[in-house]
Amino acid sequence: MKVTVDEDKCCGAGQCVLLAPEVFDQREEDGIVLLLDAEPGPDQHALVREAAAVCPAAAIEVTEDA
């Protein structure tokens, strides 16, 4: 799994951090998403998919390995 984030779209809601704090964090100064792990392990996959699904700015993209 590969994760990408669009900082320009990110609104700083932090929904992704609530769901998957091992993969996402927020910048202290403006709350924009920080991607901690662009290729998270299998134990994180379900959480990351849900984070991408609930992101209110559609700023997270998940590419599944073929």
Binding site: G12, A13, G14, L18, Q26, E28, D30, G31
Partner: peptide
């Protein structure tokens, strides 16, 4: 509420 403090507000919420 966060006013230019999105991360801190989210932590407070938790």
């Amino acid at each position: 509420l966060g006013w230019n403090m999105p991360k801190q507000a989210r932590v407070l919420r938790q």
